[in-house]
Amino acid sequence: MVTESRAGVVPVAICVPARDEAASLPGLFAALELLDRRDVSPVLCLLLDSCEDASADVVRDYGARASLPVMVEHMVQPGANAGRARHAAMLLGLSALGGEGLLLSTDADSTPAPDWLQAMVAGARRADIVAGKVVRTVTRPNPLQDRIERYYEALHAIRRVLDPVAWEATTSHHHASGANLGLPTAAYRTLGGFLPLSHGEDARLVDDAARAGLRVRRDAASVVHTSDRRLGRVAQGLAGALRALDRDSDAIAVAHPEDVAWQYRRHAEARHAFAGGDYPSLAAAIGLTTDHVRGVARDCANAEAFAMCVVPTPPAGMRQVTLAEAEAALASMAAGRRAA
């Protein structure tokens, strides 16, 4: 849970990796100046990653007039590695906080909403890790990306019907992004930080958190706007995904909603089994032996960890279908629930 000072103020480190972002950083800095800082004491921790542009000059100019403390560190690595850079930014945040407080992660091409700090602190009081909502700033429309996001939003809504948890936000969403992520310093240390992955380090951290039994809250009240640029800093980030969709809309395949819903139902059953010790019924439902299920339970700290670790892929696998097929199947499932 989030730590407060004796005066009730929450120390927060806003951790930002930047690689040749001289053009984007002024927008971020302008947004930071507009943040509502009631009962929050923020410090900006900037990790300049192998910058060859004027990023350092832009940061220096901002630091001279910023209304919040600014810490800057430089690193050099031969190629872009999002996980390594993001972890270095978080380590700078840990140092700035003296080991206790709330670490927030965002990106240099992103702009947090004015109430971002308030929303993240409120979320961190209810959960162990807060994944806020990332909204693309649309300069070049991509209807297919919009459809994909709507599909996964609807699928996540089903998740919380089938597997409700007390710490989830009233208005939730489906994704987890390093552009809008927050967790207490103790939780970050427990997880070991972002792994040195070239991409997907943010989703991996959130997945590892759930498997470790930490409560993940996907909170749509926390909003960060991010660029929809097509030239990003890593090959397989959002920019690369948008470029791929621009080129080849027929290549999109998504998980079949019935298979995903199967897992959601089993997660709920696993939570109940862990609480009541009814492992034989769960084992039969997920196709494992009772001894195997009991063994997993012994290694799990709580019901959340157990649910995330014990539930396998569906018996027929996780089918990949076209987006149109998935949308139709999801609509059919929704109609069936309304008729029930």
Rank of each mutant, 00 (worst) to 15 (best):
A301V: 15
M308L: 14
L181W: 02
S172A: 04
R84D: 06
A283T: 03
D228I: 01
A89I: 13
L181C: 11
D115A: 08
R189S: 07
N142F: 03
V310E: 03
V138A: 02
E269V: 04
P11E: 09
D128M: 02
R150W: 06
R298M: 15
A85M: 12
R217I: 13
A285E: 09
A284N: 12
A122D: 02
L231C: 06
R247G: 04
A54F: 05
G317T: 11
A273M: 15
E21M: 15
A210T: 02
G277R: 08
L197H: 08
M333W: 14
R217V: 07
E201V: 04
A157C: 12
R338S: 15
A96V: 15
P280H: 03
P280F: 03
R233M: 09
H74F: 11
D248I: 05
P69H: 01
A179T: 10
P314H: 08
F29R: 04
D109L: 06
Y152P: 05
T139I: 09
G27R: 14
R294P: 12
N302K: 03
R229Y: 00
S95D: 09
S67Y: 05
S41D: 09
A340P: 09
L195Y: 02
T313I: 08
R229P: 01
L242Y: 11
H175R: 12
A54I: 06
S41I: 08
W167E: 01
V2G: 00
F29H: 07
L330Y: 08
A275M: 03
G27W: 01
V16L: 07
A119C: 10
E52G: 15
H156G: 13
D107H: 13
S172F: 06
H267S: 06
H156I: 13
Q263K: 09
A307R: 00
A210G: 01
L195A: 06
G79W: 10
G193A: 08
A31F: 12
G132R: 04
I252H: 06
R126D: 04
A284M: 11
R86K: 13
P42Y: 00
G277F: 10
P143I: 14
A131C: 14
C51M: 07
L34F: 02
T289I: 11
I158Y: 09
H225D: 00
T190Q: 13
V254D: 01
L28M: 10
T322N: 05
T185A: 15
T170L: 14
A66K: 05
A253D: 02
G8W: 14
R218L: 11
D291N: 14
R60M: 11
L25E: 02
L288Y: 15
V72A: 04
P17H: 07
V76P: 00
D146K: 05
G27L: 04
I14M: 14
A270P: 00
V310T: 03
S332L: 15
P42H: 09
A270Y: 05
S281K: 09
S110Y: 14
R125I: 12
G178T: 01
C309S: 13
V9M: 02
G336T: 15
A339T: 14
P17C: 15
R136W: 01
A239M: 04
R65G: 00
C45I: 12
P312Y: 07
Y264V: 13
L104G: 00
